[in-house]
Design a protein around this nucleic acid. Sequence first.
DNA 1: GGCTGAATAGTCACTACTGGATAATCACCA
DNA 2: TGGTGATTATCCAGTAGTGACTATTCAGCC
Lengths: 223, 223
Amino acid sequence: MARRKVDNLLALAVLSYLSQTPMHPYELGRTLREHGDDRSIKFNHGSLYMVVQQLARAGFIEGQEATREGNRPERTVYALTDTGRAELRDWLRELVEVPRHEFPAFVAALSLVAALPPSEVIELLGRRLEHLAGQQAQARALVEQSAADGVPPLFLIEEEYRLTMLAAESGFVSEFIERIQDPVSGWGKMWAQFYGEDPAATGNNAAAGDRAATPDADLTRRG
Amino acid sequence: MARRKVDNLLALAVLSYLSQTPMHPYELGRTLREHGDDRSIKFNHGSLYMVVQQLARAGFIEGQEATREGNRPERTVYALTDTGRAELRDWLRELVEVPRHEFPAFVAALSLVAALPPSEVIELLGRRLEHLAGQQAQARALVEQSAADGVPPLFLIEEEYRLTMLAAESGFVSEFIERIQDPVSGWGKMWAQFYGEDPAATGNNAAAGDRAATPDADLTRRG
DNA sequence: GGCTGAATAGTCACTACTGGATAATCACCA
DNA sequence: TGGTGATTATCCAGTAGTGACTATTCAGCC
């Protein structure tokens, strides 16, 4: 029950660009890429034509002339309809107002992370921190370059959002590493014992609490 | 080019649960739900059978007996293979180590938000803040309840990650609202003029900079 | 003892998405 | 003038995912 007739964010971008001026699909694609929207919206060539077709079927856009230049394939120029304009507004409003429950891969990984030995997880998280730092540097560079090029800051807002979230994730990961290694919490020891590892490998050498005393505790399930 | 033969996080959960003990699909589904994994991984009935089939085809799991109880439909019990165990480890490692570029709906919305008038955006963002607060309260309640039930904190780590990210997003949204309203930055005024709104409605009554002097500036595009 | 609703268990048809395939034109070099 | 690779432009076959459907069993209730 996809509430929207066309439930694909690429369609939102299409509506938005067509609200400026009519275009044919290929031009839409080029424009999207040029403006860096492919960083915010999953884009690939095939889906674009798919989405345009769906939008046309739903009555949000309308094919106009089908012109032909030289012997190139015919190209159809599409324009936004009034219902399309309404849909764009309504959709955008909803997206800004209502946070939807999403499923990032890292959340899934975290929910199953107990299936890996803690010493390895620490290592992996360390590398993740480096990756995150790289992404932050890249995003910052993009923001600065664009600002230098005279792009108004309003059009960099997604990138700043991304920066905020990257920083938050980095903080979380660092803290997670520390918690695994923390001699008081007992996580590292309990977790390591389950794998028959030397608990010292996690940096945890304190005595574990009562719960850790049962090594056959089911570590991959919730009560 | 999905690098994984089965590229669906639900499959990861299936591998993980089958690494404990063989089960039939329906039991897998029930277990997933019971353990709250449906909060971390997109789950629906149909996809589960799809994914199990794919995993079997890929050789990561193997159907064992097909037993029948009473007159119920036949059920096939699946067990993890050695390649399956390897895939589980490798996949989990990759997910923990490498942050992948994702496309949350809010990012898409932000990248196109200039298509809405600023006064309305402020209102919508305000309501988003309330929603976010609600989600945070819910997540916190879940964490506390589980902790009280004796679930080791390691199994609540995804929920804590979610809390971290919710807090970060709330901070960002608050700041965004302020920036629109900030009399110095000029965002509100420039943005409002484009829509023929009373700039005072955004709380911005300072003089706009030079760039805002051209009301026909293309506000929805990047240079 | 028959009704109702929840739980059990799995299948299927439809739609959407993806990654190429196709095919012509153009810029450039040798 | 002929070859190479990039650009323009669209289509399509294969795969994945979703929601709805089928069908039985069981517990509780009147």
